[in-house]
Simulated assay, not measured.
Amino acid sequence: MDWSDEGLVIGTRRHGEAAIILELMTAAHGRHLGLVRGGRSRSLAGVLQPGNTVLATWRARLDEHLGTYAVEGQVLRAAALIATPAATFGLQHLASLLRLLPERDPHPGLHAAAERVAGRLTEPLLAAALLVRFELGVLADLGFGLDLNACALTGARADLAFVSPKTGRAASRSAGAPWADRLLVLPAFLVGGEVAPTPADIAAGFALTGHFLSHRVYEPRGLPPPREREAFLRALELA
Results as ranks from 00 to 15, higher is better:
residue 153 L to H: 04
residue 125 L to Y: 10
residue 182 R to P: 00
residue 232 F to H: 11
residue 147 D to W: 00
residue 136 L to K: 07
residue 176 G to D: 04
residue 151 C to N: 08
residue 202 I to M: 08
residue 175 A to C: 06
residue 159 D to S: 11
residue 156 A to P: 00
residue 135 E to L: 01
residue 233 L to F: 03
residue 228 E to P: 01
residue 166 K to Q: 15
residue 185 V to Y: 08
residue 218 Y to W: 15
residue 192 G to C: 00
residue 168 G to H: 10
residue 171 A to Y: 15
residue 142 L to T: 05
residue 174 S to L: 13
residue 127 A to W: 08
residue 165 P to M: 11
residue 188 A to Y: 00
residue 171 A to W: 15
residue 142 L to I: 04
residue 126 L to W: 03
residue 229 R to Y: 05
residue 210 G to K: 09
residue 147 D to Y: 02
residue 166 K to G: 07
residue 134 F to C: 09
residue 191 V to S: 07
residue 233 L to A: 13
residue 207 A to M: 11
residue 158 A to E: 15
residue 227 R to F: 05
residue 171 A to S: 14
residue 190 L to E: 08
residue 143 G to E: 08
residue 142 L to A: 05
residue 199 P to M: 10
residue 187 P to K: 01
residue 226 P to D: 08
residue 191 V to C: 03
residue 172 S to C: 08
residue 150 A to I: 00
residue 211 H to L: 07
residue 210 G to A: 06
residue 219 E to S: 13
residue 136 L to I: 12
residue 154 T to Y: 01
residue 205 G to R: 10
residue 137 G to A: 11
residue 212 F to W: 01
residue 164 S to I: 04
residue 208 L to M: 07
residue 162 F to I: 09
residue 142 L to F: 05
residue 178 P to M: 09
residue 140 A to C: 00
residue 232 F to E: 01
residue 222 G to R: 13
residue 232 F to V: 09
residue 194 E to D: 10
residue 129 A to Q: 09
residue 226 P to H: 12
residue 199 P to T: 07
residue 222 G to Q: 12
residue 130 L to S: 09
residue 221 R to S: 01
residue 157 R to W: 00
residue 145 G to D: 09
residue 157 R to E: 13
residue 174 S to D: 13
residue 149 N to V: 05
residue 175 A to S: 13
residue 146 L to S: 04
residue 178 P to Y: 05
residue 170 A to G: 11
